[in-house]
């Protein structure tokens, strides 16, 4: 494939096995820096499994096994010498269901910096404010930072989770269907937020929502049953898909 972008992350014939079933089949894909890459495909095709390769979250799954390689810049992530903690600082993740900790809003955002050794109160205050501002959350929470995160609405909780990721200052942000549990207005806010963030971060978003991929991403990858079918600029994928299966899927003809 011709690449006319600078590459932030890339997978090289990566396969993932859950015990003996092969969930991902030798996928090679390059992720452009400072762009939003959408991963689309029907439910169960392996989008989440694929996304979790980029910060090695699959390590947590008992009996999951990986072959192939993923690179962050030039660093091979599946090298035995890699420090996974350090990797996850550089590649943050936002989950499908907003999952704030059962702590205050402040504690949630300060969690990352704290586990990475920052205990200075003034510094933490500064980080919390900056990350809330960047996650478009500050106005809504600035007077109740000590309240439980569960008091926030679903959309606010998801932006809190984004702020929490920003607080560890990652280079790449992975989002796994971040809007699937949210109402349309909250969804729009998160999409706007992604546009604001992409100048500083490389973003990969999994979505089952075709419109979302179409309007919010720069590049799109289409997956089917553990295979990568097509990857190109979003415009191209949506206007002139090369593969018949991609066309069927985005036009809604896919089963």
């Amino acid at each position: 494939m011709m690449l006319d972008f600078s590459v932030k992350m890339k997978t090289e014939s990566i396969s993932l096995f859950y015990d003996k079933t092969e969930a991902l089949k030798k996928i090679s894909l390059a992720i452009p820096a400072h762009q939003i890459t959408a991963i689309i495909g029907p439910s169960g095709c392996g989008k989440s499994s694929f996304l979790r390769l980029f910060n090695r979250m699959n390590d947590l799954i008992w009996k999951a096994r990986v072959t192939g390689q993923v690179y962050l810049d030039a660093v091979p992530l599946y090298d035995p010498k890699i420090d996974v903690v350090e990797l996850r600082k550089r590649v943050g993740m936002v989950f499908q269901k907003p999952n704030p900790f059962p702590m205050s809003i402040f504690e949630n955002i300060a969690f990352g910096p704290r586990v990475h050794g920052c205990h200075d109160k003034a510094k933490l205050d500064e980080i919390v404010e900056r990350c809330c501002l960047r996650a478009a959350l500050w106005d809504e929470v600035k007077d109740k930072l000590r309240d439980s995160a569960f008091a926030l609405s679903g959309g606010q909780q998801q932006r809190l989770c984004i702020a929490r990721v920003l607080a560890v200052d990652p280079e790449v942000i992975l989002l796994d269907e971040p809007c699937s549990a949210l109402d349309p207005a909250s969804t729009m806010r998160i999409e706007e937020l992604m546009q604001q963030l992409k100048s500083q971060y490389t973003i990969i978003i999994v979505t089952h929502n075709m419109q979302q991929a179409g309007r919010a991403s720069d590049y799109t990858a289409f997956m089917l049953m553990g295979d990568l079918i097509e990857f190109s600029s979003t415009k191209e994928v949506f206007t002139s898909p090369k593969d018949k299966r991609t066309e069927d899927y985005i036009t809604g003809r896919w089963g």
């Binding site: 996850r88 900790f101 969690f111 990352g112 586990v115």
Partner: peptide
């Protein structure tokens, strides 16, 4: 979900257990 959030933020096993 809590556990995953902690690990994804780069917390170690010990930090995840304790915090």
């Amino acid at each position: 979900e809590y556990k995953e959030a902690a690990y994804a933020l780069g917390a170690t096993k010990w930090q995840t257990i304790r915090r």
